[in-house]
Simulated assay, not measured.
Amino acid sequence: MIAPALAATPSARVLTVPGFADFLAVDGKSVWATNVGRVERWSVHGKQAAVAMAHPCGAMTIAYGSLWVADCKALTLNRIDPKTATITAVIATGIANPKGELNVAAGAGAIWVASDAAGVIARIDPATNGVTASIPVNPDSFYLAFGEGALWAVSGTGRSLQRINPATNTVTATVALGREPGFLAVGEGAVWVQEQGDGTVARIDPAGATVTGRVKVDETLKYGDIDTGGGKVWLRTTAGQTFVVIDARTLAITARVGAAAGSGALRYTRAGVWTSAHDAHTLSWWKSPKSIGR
């Protein structure tokens, strides 16, 4: 049985964003969003910048003074200077999932992107913009996150989470997951994976590489996003509400926030939560996340 909506719905600042605003990366008080043929920087006051690309796709990351964005048409990783809103490097990595469901991750002095659906992750050195390693993993490992001293890769078809040691560029553990696992986040002492086909979020102990709990959220989680912060897991959903808040310690759902808004992304900050709704052509800013799901 799915838990009913909990807690009062906080108000959101809603911005109209023409096109198809989707994946998000927080940049101070602003946020970058992928859109059709461009990435855009927005604040609560409106659009601040845009950078043209063939087909920006997937979850982006900001690290080493740059915004890193996959291009699903050119099959490249693009490096963008956020201050000048210009592309400073185009890296021919290959993109494992040109349909666009993937992550670019940062950690251990490197940028990581799934480069081949056969099961390859490219490691990029931001000092040289060159690929320094190609790491074999399970096929269709499109979803990446870095944290707890490791790179983590999820294969939807393989129903697996793999832990990769950045010191050796090798897989050191594999965890079996539920149906159609997808986006993941590392934080609050654990790895959190959306098991989209089961409608659950799995909590994995990073040291032991074992599932330590699951929470049933909806019948499915197609398609959404996930982040952590403030002792909570923040889950963008497609049915029933805009996002769900989960207590990272107890796995209790403490809030179901907003009206259903179709698919989109979510990013947490201590000042607020950003969500996108590409079918509704909006970005929303939910202020004061400490008050949500107490």
Rank of each mutant, 00 (worst) to 15 (best):
T174H: 00
R203G: 06
A50M: 08
S291V: 14
M1Q: 02
T282R: 12
G187Y: 04
R41G: 07
T212G: 02
D247V: 09
Y64K: 09
T200Q: 14
S160V: 11
D27I: 09
R179I: 13
A114K: 08
G100M: 06
D279R: 11
K83W: 05
W152L: 02
A105I: 11
E188T: 08
A185V: 13
A265E: 10
L235Q: 09
A190L: 03
V154Q: 04
A153G: 04
T220C: 01
V120F: 01
A239V: 14
A74R: 15
L77F: 07
N35P: 03
T228G: 12
D205E: 10
F142L: 09
G100E: 06
A145I: 03
G213V: 08
C72A: 14
I80K: 06
L67I: 14
R159D: 08
V39R: 06
G149A: 03
L67E: 11
T170M: 08
V44T: 15
S115R: 10
N97L: 12
N35V: 03
W192H: 04
V113M: 12
I80N: 08
G46A: 07
G19D: 03
L15R: 05
A259K: 14
G158K: 13
G224V: 09
A259L: 12
G264E: 08
V131N: 02
P18Y: 03
E101M: 07
